[in-house]
């Protein structure tokens, strides 16, 4: 691993126009070649954080931060054009598979190639050759036919593989994958994740993977952030996090991963309560309503603890 920081964000806060806080003072960094997993329920702010990095935050939201550098570009100072070409040229974005991220009325080949032609200053033929190669790499046999199809002629899994190939077109240094494997068959899931790992090993490409599937992240990432209610509540290496989770929420999360040796008639574990409504002004711990270790102090304050400088968590206790 190099010592150049790929991602350096300090105290990022995302708010709505009316001042509701959706992401609350989070800090994260990434090294070159790192595989970072972000785990959290929907509404925890993980997707918004990713969208800020690729400059796609919805118009009605705004962000502020003490420091915000991506691949050496300072978002607080750089002009919009520089950020645009950084996002287009050096960051690959793999969206959630549940949406329709390919234009239904444009052929795949005309969508997969346009970004490459723009940023690699190449001809359309070169772009299509590369597209064909990448589409083959994500496990599609008849690449010619695929490139000449419209997105609605493909299955969901095929479309997601096209999305991934599209993200790889410009040889990105950072890939941001937002729930890349949701709604895919488990065999394809593994194929996709293995592909990310292969790209990571071959080109030192870093991957920021967002998922609510802790099992997947465990299998795949070196370091994991757990988000809840717009905050990072625990951060540790993958091994540490599973070996000794510290935050009550993380503990519950690990417990609810359905394990294969579940006994007949046994109930699956669940986390009590509901995801808290995000953005309400609150003090103290974000997880207090659902936490079984709750004490009076949790209503007013929360302590940030660190085990060895690498494993940090936000809880008043060390359980």
């Amino acid at each position: 691993m190099g010592d150049e920081k790929l991602l350096d964000i300090k105290n990022l806060t995302i708010k709505t126009g009316s001042g509701r806080v959706l992401v609350n003072h989070i800090s994260l960094d990434m090294e070159k070649g790192e595989l970072l997993g972000v785990e959290g329920e929907s509404g925890s702010g993980k997707t918004l954080t990713a969208k800020t990095i690729i400059n796609l935050l919805p118009e009605n939201l705004s962000w502020e931060a003490e420091r915000f550098q991506v691949l050496g570009v300072d978002y607080l100072k750089a002009d919009p054009k520089a950020i645009k070409s950084l996002v287009g040229g050096r960051i690959g974005y793999v969206p959630q598979n549940t949406g329709f991220y390919l234009h239904p009325m444009i052929k795949i080949k005309d969508q997969i190639a346009d970004g490459y032609v723009l940023y690699s200053k190449s001809s359309i033929e070169e772009a299509l050759a590369r597209a064909s190669k990448l589409v083959g790499a994500v496990g599609i046999k008849d690449t010619e036919r695929l490139l000449n199809s419209y997105p609605w002629q493909l299955s969901g899994g095929m479309r997601q593989r096209v999305n991934i190939a599209m993200a790889l077109m410009n040889k990105p240094r950072l890939i941001i994958a937002d729930e890349p494997t949701t709604a895919l068959d488990s065999t394809i899931q593994k194929q996709v994740v293995d592909l990310f790992r292969a790209v990571n090993e071959a080109h030192q490409t870093s991957v920021l993977m967002i998922s609510h599937d802790l099992g997947l992240i465990k299998y795949y990432c070196q370091r994991i952030l757990v988000m809840y209610g717009g905050q990072i509540i625990e951060e540790a290496s993958a091994g540490d996090l599973f070996a000794m989770p510290k935050h009550p929420y993380t503990k519950l999360l690990i417990k609810v991963i359905p394990s294969l040796n579940i006994k007949r008639g046994e109930r699956l574990e669940e986390i009590p309560g509901h995801v808290l409504e995000i953005g309400k002004p609150r003090s103290g711990c974000v997880f207090k309503e659902r936490c079984s270790y709750r004490q009076d102090i949790c209503a007013t304050e929360v302590k940030e603890q660190s085990l060895d400088g690498f494993h940090t968590f936000r809880c008043n206790f060390d359980i």
Partner: peptide
């Protein structure tokens, strides 16, 4: 639409984004 997000994430020019997509 989602595909507009994707077009922006690819860093395409405003012209391409608005007229092609």
């Amino acid at each position: 639409q989602d595909f507009m997000d994707m077009a922006r994430a690819k860093g395409l020019s405003s012209f391409t984004i608005y007229f092609k997509y």
